[in-house]
């Protein structure tokens, strides 16, 4: 079954379809959350809550307005950011824009089960400029708008789009070569 039909059945509250979508995206979504909260246990907890929310809000997804993954991504990062803001994570909130998704890779216990992916990602990311790492982190993982990115990185608004394009292309190039 293709993604489109799977999503349709999921929207009709078919738990089997939901399970398949979960298998497809759970790792990524938990990863997005983890890149924000940078806490294994907490990110697992939030990740479950996010998929519960996804099930409840299944009606609100509209394929003509975006990718299913983008929809999931948006719910996940909002939930993760809300969590950071609501709980006693005020310090981390202040650091939010400073912590990049690559920061997780520096945690000593992270790569035990996931050594391959992590080291691959390192390789992919290593060649990226700091500005690329920041812009990808802010746009995809922190959910910053173009304007917010321009302000945070102190670059002209018109350059956000093309710089991001260049950074993603660089990342794709790195992935291809590895």
């Amino acid at each position: 079954m293709d993604l489109e039909h799977l999503i349709q059945r999921f929207q009709l509250k078919d738990t089997k379809a939901f399970e398949k979508l979960y298998e497809m995206y759970a790792t990524n979504i938990c990863g997005v959350i983890n890149s924000i909260v940078q806490d294994d246990e907490l990110s697992q907890e939030i990740c479950q809550d996010v998929f519960m929310k996804v099930w409840q809000k299944s009606d609100s997804y509209n394929s003509s307005k975006g990718r299913f993954f983008t929809w999931l991504l948006n719910i996940a990062r909002n939930a993760a950011i809300d969590e950071l803001r609501s709980k006693s994570h005020k310090e981390q909130k202040l650091n939010l824009s400073a912590d990049l998704f690559v920061g997780i890779l520096d945690q000593p216990n992270e790569s035990e089960n996931d050594e391959m992916n992590s080291s691959q990602l390192k390789n992919w990311v290593v060649g990226l400029k700091q500005k690329c790492k920041q812009i990808i982190d802010l746009l995809y993982f922190k959910g910053y708008s173009q304007k917010e990115v321009a302000e945070a990185l102190d670059i002209p608004l018109g350059t956000v789009k093309t710089r991001n394009r260049n950074c993603i292309s660089q990342l794709r190039e790195n992935m291809k070569n590895n």
């Binding site: 399970e19 979960y22 298998e23 759970a26 790792t27 990524n28 979504i29 938990c30 990863g31 997005v32 983890n34 890149s35 294994d40 246990e41 990110s43 697992q44 990740c47 479950q48 990718r67 993954f69 983008t70 991504l73 998704f101 997780i104 890779l105 216990n109 992270e110 035990e112 089960n113 996931d114 992916n117 992590s118 691959q120 990602l121 992919w124 990808i136 995809y140 993982f141 993603i168 990342l171 794709r172 992935m175």
Partner: peptide, 19 residues
């Protein structure tokens, strides 16, 4: 999308809760 999926997968916690 696959690029972002790959990056986000790499950032995932040690274990992902089962369905």
């Amino acid at each position: 999308e696959n690029t972002i999926l790959a990056v986000s997968r790499s950032a995932s916690p040690k274990s992902v809760p089962s369905f």
